[in-house]
Every structure is written in C-alpha cells, then in structure tokens.
Design a protein around this nucleic acid. Sequence first.
RNA 1: GGUCGGGUGGCCGAGCGGUUAGGCAGAGGUCUGCAAAACCUUGUACGGCGGUUCGAAUCCGCUCCCGACCUCCA
Length: 499
Amino acid sequence: MSGLQVFNSLKKEKEVFEPINEGLVGMYVCGPTVYSDVHLGNIRTFISFDIIYRYLKYLGYKVRYVRNITDVGHLVGDLDQGEDKIAERAKLENLEPMEVVQKYSNGFHQMMDTFNVLPPSIEPRATGHIIEQIEMVQKILDNKLAYVKNGSVYFDTIKFNKKYKSYGQLSGRVIDELFSETRELKNQSEKKHPADFAIWMKADDRHLMKWNSPWSVGFPGWHLECSAMSTKYLGEKFDIHGGGNDLKFPHHENEVAQNMGACGCTPANYWLHTNMLLMNGRKMSKSDGNTITPLQLFTGESEHITKGYSPMVIKFFMLQAHYRSTIDLSDEALSAAEKGYKKIMEANKFLQSIEHTEPSEISEVDAKITEGIKGVFTELDDDFNTPKTLARLFELVPIINSYKDGKAEFLQIKSETVAALQKCFQDVIFDIFGLQDEYASGGNTLYDSLDGVMNLVIELRQEARSKKDWATADKIRDTLAKEKIVIKDGKEGTSWNLN
RNA sequence: GGUCGGGUGGCCGAGCGGUUAGGCAGAGGUCUGCAAAACCUUGUACGGCGGUUCGAAUCCGCUCCCGACCUCCA
C-alpha cells in the first residue's frame, strides 16, 4: 500500500509498516493525566502523534486512533503509597475530583485545538472503564499471574517472567539488575518482589475516589487502564502503540505484561516513542519546575524568551526536529523558526495563486519539481521524518518564488506539474503537518475587509509613487509598519501582510 | 551505581562509509526611488586520541563531557 517505514522500539530498528488488517490501522497513544495544565512536553508528543495519525490517513488507511485521559490511579510520590494525583489536586483546589478532571480536560482540549491537533477517534477515560479493569484483574488472577494481599492485587512479575521470559524486552531491563541492591524498599511488605506492581489497590478512608471490587473498595493501578481500554477498543492485538519515551518504563513494560498476563499475547506490533522536549539542555518537566507554559510562550512573559511566539510557530519549530530526537527550546531557535514558517507560508500563498498557462516548451525546471515532490513523500515515508520533509519543501521554495520573476525557464512547466506542486504544498502543510496560516484569510471576514482597505491604501500609495511623491509613499509604508503591516513592492505590483 | 541515548559550523537541526541537508544569522551581488521581500553566489563543521578502510561526521577501541530512564512524568 505504501513504502512507509517506522522505527519500532520493540525491535530497536526501522521496519516496513504492515497493518494487521489491510487498509485499517489501530493506534493507541497514552494521553495526559489531567491533574494540572498541560505543558509543552505533552504538546510536543501529541503533535508528533497527530502528524503520524494524519499521515496514515493521508496514505489511505482507515485509522482508529485511541488516546486516553487518565483521571484516576496515578499516584504522587514514590512506590505505591502516594496519594492519587487527581484527588490531591481536588483537595488543594477544594473541588470534586471530577471537577478537577473536567477543568483540566477542557484546558487540554482547548490547547490541542490551539495547536490544530485533531481529536482522536475515541478518547476513553480510566474512570469510565472500571468494570473492564476489574475484569482484566480477574483474568490475570485466573491465569495465576497475580496475587491478592490485604485487598490489593499485585502483578506477579517474577512468575510472569518465568512463563514468558519477555519482561523488560521493551525497555531493555533485566529484573535481577533492576531491583538488585539499589533501592531501599520501604513499606513494601505486601509485595512478594519489588518488581511486582499493583493492578488493584485497596483505598483507605481518606481516599476520595474508590470503587467496589471483589477484593476491596479501591481503585485500579495506573498501568491497567491502558491495557484494558486498548483491548476494549482495538482488540487484544493492534498495530501501533505510542507514547513519550519516559513512559517506556515502567508504564509500557507493565502494560505489555498485563496484556500478556490476561490474554497471552503482546498488544501492539509497533511501539513508537517520542523523545523529550528540552529547555536549557534538560528535560522539560512539570515536576521539577524546568518548564514554560504554552501561555507564557504565546505572550512572551517568561525569562526564557524575549517575545511571544504563536502556536503555529511553536509547532513549526517542533517539526524541524525528528520526533525521536530531543529538541532544545530557546529564544533564538524559536525566532529562527518564526522566519522559516513565514517564508514557507508566503511561498505557498503565492503558489496557490498561480494561474498557469501551458507553455510550448518544457524546461528542466519541470523535472526538478517533479523530483522534489517525490522527495517530500520519500522523507515522510521514512519514519515520519518531518525535518527532512521540510528541507525538501524549502528546496522548492526558490523555484516557486522565481516564478514571480517571469523568467522563461520557470514558466516552462507543464500545467500538471504546477498542479502537483500546488497539491503537494497544500497537502503537506495543512493536511499532514496540520499547520494553519495565521497571517492570512481563510474565511476570516475581518481579514477580508482589511484586505479591501489595504488594496485601496496600496492604490493611493501607487499614485503617489508614480508622481515621485516619495514622502507620501514612505509615510504610508512607515505608518503601516508601525501597525505591523508590511508593504512589499514586487515586480508584479505591491503586496502586503501582517507581521 | 546500573541501563540506554547523545556530542555536527554563530544558533536550531538532518545525515550515519564516498554526494549541497534545510532553516535562521553573516558576507557579496541582482532587483528597487529608497527600504523590505525575492532571486543568485558564498565562508565557517562533525568533542578528543588512536584504529579499520582506497575513502569516516558516519564503523571499531579508548577517553572527556552532557542527557534520559532506573521514583510521578509526554
């Protein structure tokens, strides 16, 4: 169906992508825990998977994209003794846990919208799937790969590994090394082995969120929800499982164990992991304060940046790095991205306005364009290599802009080549990358009327210029510049855009 | 301490055995009333030390530095 290759964390190499059912793709991505505002790192991950989702659809696959919302079971602090993150926040803000969940889910959705990230096909919540999770615990117990202790249920990692010999495959861990002598294990008396983990936890009286189960009034373990919900909506075996690099261990490793423990088969064929967003060379993280909020980035109110950057500029900046590489956020890098973003958007705007007439002769530029277009999709097929895709696009930009100059070699292109180029840019920029033109119309009535006004202003200025009345011409230009409207005198007349 | 990943030009960031990555910034030029934009040309590079090879940023060894995971994290 395509030449798509993806890097599979499970094998640590690129593989040709072949879905289980021809033409259909099932993809599960670990979503956010909604206990506070989303931060930029989350956004980078979801933008990466959005592009993967969009490209799979572009290739013609029918994709069922499931991305969960974690609203229970995720504990604060170490081991399994901490407070539930949602519940802790609820106490802090004096809200019902579900109010916390709603509040930050709304914020999350709004931010995804701001970055033009498509909603998934299904967005299940952990609390909406308590029954499924309880059933899964029961299955694992039936398979004798978990044990009950004081109302809590623990996954028996040692026994599991004896049976399947696969624990640690995804994250590259070895149980013995993992928990040998390193960690002093306090309060771990309930577990038979430190590598075991809770799949159901008995709640004490202080707990705000708890449900009835055969074992106790309690709540599910964090890793369980993804196993239960992916199985429910994508089946016991599906195509792609994604998430941030930092979830590989223990979350994804335990997820695989739970799925195997319940049904005997590995859940996903391809595991894709996105790398971290850095700032000052260190992982951006909510928990250690090395972070900048999206809002601060938009407004510029942060010590880390000199001015604000729009969502699309930030997105473009992220696209300039591969999803498996870290990317280091800085003011300089963002401002470079801003210029690059504008350049490509401007070129595209012009490209789309071209009304080409079939030439009598064809120059070599024609073949160059055709080859360039092919290159764009070769890069996308290569594990969604957005920086290289962008590079290929940028190589076509001078050709597009040269068309303005009217030089014969640039006009001697087949109409179908122009159409293909227009489609390529349009499709990649908007449909696959999900960028938006923040500086242009698109059904924006305010913009449209401004465009009308600007055409008048440009006309008046042109009259002044033809009378060599430079003072008036420059006054118009300079005054507009103060309003962040840039006037550009080209051969084909004058154009304008918002800066 | 264990495991894994990385160090590329002024900045960001691809590439990973031989070919220009790309963007931004810099230099020169064309165009322009001037400017901006656009177009053309262009410099600066692969942490260090060895090795393999006709040829290494790319493979191997050693070394220095950084990061991630091992505990909640996208």
